[in-house]
Design a protein around this nucleic acid. Structure first.
Length: 269
DNA sequence: CATAAAATAT
DNA sequence: CATATTTTAT
């Protein structure tokens, strides 16, 4: 049980890393969480320009001397690192489940997830790990060993669609490939014991390196802190937070287990 | 110092 | 797109 360091660990470093004046960059912050935005049916077109070639310097291509500034504006942003929070993973699994193995390719998954800031590489990498996890689980279930190791804790948090495990992957029969009825209500009780949920803060934690701006509770409670980049649902994590739910069930668990991943035609590739 | 997770390269 | 390898965080 050495993993339980996390909840204490980051808390210790918390104030150390965050309040650096230099890090308090006035970068463009999303005032609207994409979930909320999606709920409002507004397209959260925040930062369109990932990296792909794009950049057309109007005329003079020079003057871009990068002085290796630590506090680089939103432009030329290096993605710090994506943190796959349970919620995010849940979304991932849902997307894969609804797509079916055949269509469950990184690009499609990414599109279905509609998470701003999420790149195909991120999904691909995670998908790889997810597949490995599934495979491992198959082998283990046959041997009769423990179902879950201490590892895979992230994956364990998400309800694994049954079709993935068994092996079927793709019954080529016929051609009707619509297995929609995924898990009914996942009961969310997946969390086993302790120290996890901090992922929300964890996501924010990795942000605070690039963005400070704390102490701005948006007049609400803790919302979902996913999206490792972009939405900074940073709130004051006071010590007494342990009393309340640090995380919320994401959008779903609606009526009838019908979950609609808002797929809006943003004209994305 | 070892392991897990994400990124990056093939 | 899938897999392998490398990097980075814990």
């Amino acid at each position: 049980m050495r993993e339980d360091e996390d909840h204490t660990n980051w808390f210790s470093r918390w104030e150390e890393q965050l309040p650096t004046p230099e890090e308090l960059t006035p970068l463009t912050q999303n005032l609207i969480p994409q979930d909320l935005a999606l709920a409002f049916d507004i397209t959260p077109n925040r930062s369109p320009p990932p990296p792909p070639s794009s950049n057309l310097p109007p005329s003079s291509s020079s003057e871009f001397a990068d002085s290796a500034g630590p506090d680089e504006p939103a432009r030329t942003l290096k993605r710090p690192r994506l943190v796959w929070t349970p919620q995010l993973h849940k979304r991932f699994v849902d997307a894969v489940a609804h797509l079916g193995i055949k269509n469950a390719v990184p690009k499609t998954i990414m599109q279905l997830m509609s998470v701003d800031g999420l790149t195909r590489e991120n999904v691909a990498s995670h998908l790889q790990k997810y597949r490995l996890y599934l495979k491992r689980m198959q082998g283990l279930s046959a041997g009769g060993a423990s179902s879950d190791a201490a590892a895979d804790r992230l994956f364990a948090s998400a309800p694994v669609p049954h079709h993935f495990l068994h092996r079927g992957a793709g019954p080529p029969s016929g051609g009707g490939e619509h297995y929609l009825p995924y898990v009914p209500v996942a009961a969310a009780a997946a969390f086993q014991h302790h120290h996890h949920q901090m992922a929300v803060a964890a996501a924010a934690q990795q942000h605070q390196r690039h963005m400070g701006h704390f102490g701005s509770p948006p007049g609400g409670q803790f919302e979902h802190g996913f999206l490792a980049r972009g939405t900074q649902a940073v709130h004051r994590m006071v010590q007494g937070v342990a009393s309340g739910p640090a995380y919320v069930e994401d959008l779903e668990s609606g009526g009838g287990g019908r979950k609609v991943l808002t797929l809006f035609p943003t004209g994305e590739e």
